[in-house]
């Protein structure tokens, strides 16, 4: 027959990533509305080429054991988390070194979290304050008993420590009780 002479074309069959190969199918199409949903895995992975841009000196500072903030020349507003331009007068700020010792402004203990950090739970998050610095800094606190949190931790003096092997992340610095 003519059909038999036609060359068969086919996509190759593979089983990569497949978790479901077949499902029952009703004879009567009316029964399809009662079908359970087909749920499949769809992996998705991205590597971003993230630039710290104008904030890069902060991360260079951490790699060199310095915690940097910024200060506005004209209005003297001082930022514990750096921003290159002042929120209040719009002027470009200068880089300054922050004191190694600060205090806990507030804290929490995360027993659950985002997937990326689940394996690190429980971990302690703090906002650090310094006298004369107008804004705060988000960091981790280690060296406290995360199972015995107390409101008295607010105000605790803490000291910055730096990772020896920099990962160029804000976690290159963390705090311990001073």
């Amino acid at each position: 027959m003519e059909e038999q002479e036609k060359k068969r074309v086919k996509l190759p069959e593979t089983d990569e990533g497949t978790v479901l190969f077949n499902v029952p199918f009703p004879k009567d199409l009316k029964d399809l509305k009662g079908m359970a949903p087909i749920i499949i895995r769809q992996p998705y992975h991205i590597d971003y080429i993230h630039s710290y841009g104008q904030d890069s000196p902060f991360f260079a500072g951490l790699a060199n054991g310095k915690l940097l903030g910024t200060r506005c020349g004209p209005c003297k507003h001082t930022y514990g988390t750096p921003r290159l331009h002042c929120m209040y007068c719009g002027n470009e700020c200068d880089w300054i070194e922050l004191p190694k010792e600060g205090a806990v402004h507030t804290f929490t203990i995360c027993h659950f979290g985002s997937e990326e950090f689940l394996k690190e739970t429980p971990f302690v998050l703090i906002l650090v304050e310094w006298p004369g610095v107008d804004t705060l800094f988000l960091s981790r606190l280690v060296g406290v008993d995360s199972l015995q949190p107390s409101l008295d931790w607010v105000g605790m003096k803490v000291r910055a420590q730096f990772k020896r092997l920099s990962k160029f992340k804000p976690t290159d610095v963390y705090f311990v009780p001073a």
Binding site: D55, C110, T171
Partner: peptide, 10 residues
Amino acid sequence: VSFDYPVGGF
């Protein structure tokens, strides 16, 4: 995502 998320964003 530069200063907050990587510290333990939750």
